[in-house]
Amino acid sequence: MARYFLKLSGRLLLTLAVVSTAVFFLIRLTPGGPAVAMLGQDASPDAVARLNEKLGLTDPLLLQYWKFLAQLAQGSLGESLTNGLSVSETILGVLPHTLELAVAGLAIGMLGGITLGIVEAVWKDRSPDVVGRVLSLVGLSFPSFFVAVLLILFIALPLGLPTNGVAPFTEPGSNLQRVLLPALAMGIVSTAYTSRITRSLMVEIIGENHVRTARAKGVREGRVLVRHVLQPGSLPLVPIAGISFITLVGDAVLIETVFARPGLGSLMVSAMQARDYTTVQGCIIVITTVIVLVNAAVDALYHVLDPRTKTV
């Protein structure tokens, strides 16, 4: 077990190092560099040179990389090119809102998707399955940002619900009210995706021999479903939750923009529009860290839950 966790953390650090290095060099090797991107293609060479000086981009690349790593080791992601604020502080300020949104979206998606998938599998090829499958194909085709627009148009506006911003966690009521619709927008698409995977997983398990054994023993159908289908099936659902979470973090970029929620995604998009590369770089590194941690948690959870790894 200890060896497993050691290997896992090694893999995590490696992934993180590769991604941050890739982002660092990608940004600096852009044709013309950030200065050109910020000032536009027809900026005077003088202006570009001055900005490069100011951004510390005139140093040799390896020296810049060394400084970047040294900063990173101290937990600093540098300063924003547009407002000079500490990137790590800005990100830490908005990160909880994004995590809240993604977790809420994940909860809706997993709950809805697993339920729907199980119903489809149990009633395979009968009407609940046929209807469910068409519904999930429809859900899968909706861009989440369009779902968000529809929710605003048909739910928030008629009901007078807030359609933008976030509320501090110290006001749970108002906070929840503002996270509900964005989470629903993400959750609907996630439900469709999860239900398809759950269905095929459960159909497979229902066809397995041990389910037939349980029925031959005279076990009640309800118990067969819980103990012999859902319980073995819950293990493979763990990594699916991980993949969904990653998708949701990506979706947060769009949803936060629609609902004008401060968050990691909207921060990154506005930084991209403003060509604020240190902030972009910081956002990518933090997103990667979150994803890597979630993956690790999923991997570890799977490892802990799998009876095949318990006794060796």
């Binding site: 990653i246 973090v249 769009l254 990154m268 994803i291 890597v292």
Partner: peptide, 19 residues
Amino acid sequence: DVKMAFPGLVLALLFVALF
């Protein structure tokens, strides 16, 4: 695997913003 662990939209955004 590293790439799969990364949202496609975020990667596309970064690429477009840079290039």
